[in-house]
Design a protein around this nucleic acid. Sequence first.
DNA 1: CTCCTGCTCA
DNA 2: TGAGCGGGAG
Length: 277
Amino acid sequence: MNTSPLSATEVAGFQAHVYRYFSLHGRSLPWRFSSNPWHIFVSEIMLQQTQVSRVAEKYPPFIEAFPTPQALAQSPFPQVLALWNGLGYNRRARFLHSAAQQIHTLHHDSVPSTTSDLMALSGIGAATAAAIRAYAFNLPEIFIETNIRAVYIYHFFPQNDAVDDCQLLPYLRQTLDKTAPARWYNALMDYGVLLKRTLKNPAKRSKHHSIQSTFAGSDRELRGKVIRILLQKDKQPKDELIKAITDDPARGERIIQSLIKDKILSSEAEILFLSTG
DNA sequence: CTCCTGCTCA
DNA sequence: TGAGCGGGAG
């Protein structure tokens, strides 16, 4: 097991390389100006599988509306969804709403800092928990996401294909700037964005890379349409709503049921409305 | 066409 | 382990 693949000189050189780019071209993003763990928590949920440019637009009004876990926890879900709409993966709004209620009731409105407490919250997996610990609490965590993959695959596995995250971990552990984890990950991800923009996405050589199914004509396109309709209409008879999104009643029914299963929709006597939370 | 600071559930 | 989940910029 090669736990320390790099020399001290190589580590210092790599860190300097990443920080040099960061100091010249680092992005100034809304959530980076905050040290409020809740605000950083919200940004991490929004950023799951979602471009920074999109989150940068939606984040400020969302934080203004829900500045504390309590504010979000006590708001009706449709109001949350209204400010979330456009970010995509709307069930994350449900997860975030639930997480806020958990933080409010279980942790007295302060975002927990332990990995187990974070992962017990809705919508928080290993990667997001570690990212929150690094960004909100400046703890020396190790986590991998697509930009980080691009950096480490490009620098340390230039010839390899189907690189497993396990192979990257020793390099991440050794190169992590433990004196400033939050700043380090900011620098790392900004540098990764550069590599992906200029080098045809080195992260494609990750074992964990997968092609997404097309969005046009997909079920999740129709799910999004349902939500936008109900944000306008308040409530709708089920059969009318199904007809509004598709000519295939069975498919429409399946879409509705999946939204109910995700607790985004509720129904009473064939009337559909956004779940109230 | 691609993929985006992943997670949940089967 | 894999399928499913938004929506749009490039």
